[in-house]
Simulated scan of single mutants.
Amino acid sequence: MQIEDWIVHDIPDDVIDQASDWIVQLDKLEHDDAFAAACPSATLLRQDFYDWLNRDHLHQLAFLQLSEMWAKSSMLRHMEHLIDKSEVIQFPNLHAAPALDVEPGPILIDHHDTLSAPAWMYNVVIGLVVVGTLIPFLL
């Protein structure tokens, strides 16, 4: 999911700006005791917010979309320790390694893994396929 999926694109920028200002003020009022103490009237601030919200349906839509995005981003901050973080694997510095007098040989591949079949089995399978196709002609 991308951030473009979280918000509606047809909301005017000034309405988005107003909604983001309201989200910040209301969040400060709820979580910042110093701001709440400095605010002369939290009730008046909330009433102004409700008046703004009821003025236009775009205000409601913008606030809904931005507050959802705000909540999602807050949730991500709280879950950050659960998210796998990529790590950079450092390769050895080839220039710092001592020079070798012997040129490296080809890499040998071990063909004795448990998944490969023995060479004689291929001949048996080919023989069975040939005999299976010839049986109708032999009868």
Rank of each mutant, 00 (worst) to 15 (best):
8 V>K: 14
122 Y>N: 10
63 F>T: 05
99 A>S: 15
128 L>F: 05
55 R>F: 10
106 P>R: 03
89 I>T: 10
91 F>V: 14
28 K>G: 00
54 N>T: 08
38 A>M: 09
73 S>Y: 09
7 I>S: 00
124 V>R: 04
122 Y>E: 01
23 I>A: 11
15 V>P: 04
112 H>Q: 09
84 D>I: 02
45 L>H: 07
126 I>L: 11
98 P>Y: 07
130 V>L: 14
90 Q>R: 11
106 P>T: 03
49 F>H: 07
137 F>A: 02
115 L>A: 02
127 G>R: 04
24 V>M: 14
127 G>A: 08
71 A>L: 03
94 L>H: 07
132 G>A: 04
74 S>E: 09
26 L>W: 13
118 P>S: 06
22 W>D: 04
65 Q>G: 09
87 E>G: 01
73 S>R: 12
44 L>E: 15
115 L>I: 00
129 V>Y: 02
130 V>A: 15
61 L>Q: 11
52 W>Y: 03
61 L>D: 05
132 G>V: 07
58 L>V: 08
6 W>D: 14
15 V>D: 03
35 F>M: 02
22 W>Y: 11
102 V>Q: 11
108 L>W: 05
139 L>Y: 06
78 H>N: 02
57 H>W: 08
134 L>F: 12
138 L>R: 03
106 P>I: 13
29 L>S: 10
1 M>S: 09
36 A>E: 12
129 V>W: 09
88 V>E: 08
82 L>R: 10
114 T>H: 02
82 L>S: 04
38 A>F: 06
45 L>T: 09
60 Q>W: 00
79 M>D: 09
41 S>T: 09
28 K>M: 12
44 L>W: 01
91 F>Y: 15
